[in-house]
Design a protein around this nucleic acid. Structure first.
Length: 472
RNA sequence: GGCACCGUGGCGGAGAGGCUACGCAGCGGCCUGCAAAGCCGUGUACACCGGUUCGAAUCCGGUCGGUGCCUCCA
């Protein structure tokens, strides 16, 4: 196993990944609040942590990826009222959409996907523990977390509690606050008129606050000191700060060893978010861009950096996928060079590009740098093929597999069953061969145009002409 | 205002004191009847101004511009 280092938001520096139990890694990622279809910005953590899991599995770890769905919350109530449906129904519908949309990414599912609504016992227990420890207090059916009780509050997001306190703004727009301190936040909220779901608790009927559910679900699924806790960097404060504080005060232990945060997607230099209105829904992105190009696009930037999404970037990713496909096709037609170990080339030498690829991933999961090495491999392979030698695709497949892109090497190219040229196309090709033999270039070119219209690209090679599926 | 961070060639995007990735697009060449594909080559790229250094895109200071969070947000 390689030494793997990841940037920890709390420490602000690279931290070595050290499993609590040898060979086992737990990852908890904050998933979406299911009140509408997810967009490609929401998709980034899903992709990043799914790919990270693939990499860790490749490295020999037994990985458990847990990602929750927040299915009770103000936004869901509001959206349900707008649409005139029960909030529980809306959450179920949108949860189903979320799973279906992310399924289409082809990255598999997280191992566990807990729901807030089915985690109530753990949530209530955790709140009760906080109350018992005096880190939380109940008022009129609400329960609040006593922020100043946690002397390390602010350590994750690098904020000073006293400075936070100086901010302005109204605390409770609708009325007087029940909080002892304006920094305190709700663990449990008494049910209000207009809210159509509520659960019994020692403090009365109500529902959990947003932050507490993650502390409870994460601990329930993975225990304390989770190797990696992740999410978008817009969750650092207050969500993750609060999660960390809750667990710390309830358990005298840290919830996570490494806090990993993904950067925002940007459209025209602005964060993509529903409130800005510049969103591209994930399912539409998959339709329009293509699953492979989309995954490649996510992988093309380091996960912590902002990633610009524009037409040229999308076209670039699509072009890259085409090149990969083309190489896969060339390798397949060139024949089997004899199986070699994935870590060595066909002649038994170590494969430096493959090694550099995985080393880059071990260094703060730098998929962008890793791709750079993959492309060098691609270029060399093409050169080998140009020279007439076969190429062993095993190292390439190994690299692409970690990025969930190995399917581009499949000769069948996608899901169409009707692979292979039909008789009509083959007849046109034969006619063109004749015309070429007769040096009737005009006729040969006309036949090539006909083939193109039928969706076939003619490729003249040393072994004669062949037909390749044209680009859309 | 506070905290975190960013400004790299047409676009995307690595890197982080000397070796100036990579992809897409462009241009030139090889190959080809012509193309396509591939290969080779190619671009005054590191916001600006100072400083440190033998040497800075990389370090320090400042300036300008931008982003995120500080309220729900991946």
């Amino acid at each position: 196993m390689r030494t793997i280092r990841l940037q920890d938001t709390a420490g602000g520096e690279l931290r070595e990944l050290r499993p609590r139990v040898d060979g086992r890694i737990g990852i908890y990622v904050c998933g979406p609040t299911v009140y509408s279809r997810v967009h490609i910005g929401n998709g980034r953590p899903f992709v990043v942590f799914s790919l990270l899991k693939r990499f860790l599995v490749h490295e020999g770890y037994d990985v458990t990826l847990v990602s929750n769905l927040t299915d009770v919350n103000d936004k869901i109530y509001a959206a349900a009222v707008r649409e005139g449906v029960p909030s529980g129904d809306l959450a179920v519908t949108m949860g189903d959409h979320y799973r279906a949309d992310t399924d289409r990414l082809g990255l598999g599912r997280p191992d566990v996907e807990p729901l807030a609504t089915t985690s109530m016992p753990a949530i209530i227990d955790l709140i009760a523990d906080l109350v018992a420890r005096d880190a939380a207090y109940a008022v009129d059916g609400d329960v609040y977390f006593r922020v100043r009780r946690d002397d390390r509050y602010g350590s994750l997001s690098h904020r000073d509690v006293d400075q936070m306190d100086q901010g302005e703004g109204d605390d409770a727009p609708g009325g007087a606050s029940l909080k002892e301190d304006r920094l305190d936040f709700a663990l449990w909220k008494a049910t209000k008129p207009g809210e159509d779901t509520a659960w019994d608790s020692p403090w009365g009927r109500g529902r959990p606050g947003w932050h507490i559910e993650c502390s409870a679900m994460a601990e329930e699924a993975l225990g304390l000191g989770i190797e990696i806790h992740g999410g978008g960097n817009d969750l650092v404060f207050p969500h993750h700060e609060n999660e960390a504080a809750q667990t710390r005060c309830a358990r005298d232990a840290e919830l996570a060893a490494i806090w990993m945060h993904t950067g925002m997607l940007e459209l025209r230099g602005e964060k993509m978010s529903k409130s800005v209105g510049n969103v591209l829904p994930l399912h539409r992105a998959i339709d329009e861009i293509g699953r492979d190009a989309l995954v490649l696009l996510y992988a093309s930037a380091h996960y912590r950096k902002p990633l610009g999404f524009d037409d040229q970037a999308i076209a670039g990713a699509q072009g890259s996928v085409r090149r990969l496909r083309e190489l896969g096709r060339r390798i397949a037609t060139a024949g089997d060079p004899g199986a070699a170990d994935a870590a060595t080339d066909a002649s038994g030498r170590p494969d430096p590009h493959r090694d550099a690829f995985f080393a880059a991933l071990a260094d703060d999961f730098n998929t962008a740098a890793a791709l750079g090495h993959l492309w060098r491999w691609v270029r060399e392979a093409n050169g080998t093929l140009d020279a007439g030698s076969p190429v062993d695709p095993a190292p390439l497949r190994e690299m692409l597999d970690v990025l969930a892109l190995a399917d581009v090497l499949e000769p069948v190219d996608g899901h169409d069953a009707d692979d292979g040229p039909d008789d009509a196309a083959l007849a046109l090709l034969a006619a063109r061969d004749e015309a070429r033999a007769a040096k009737d270039w005009a006729r040969a070119d006309a036949l090539r145009d006909e083939l193109a219209a039928a969706g076939w690209t003619v490729r003249d090679g040393a072994g004669g002409a062949e037909l390749v599926r044209g680009d859309r």
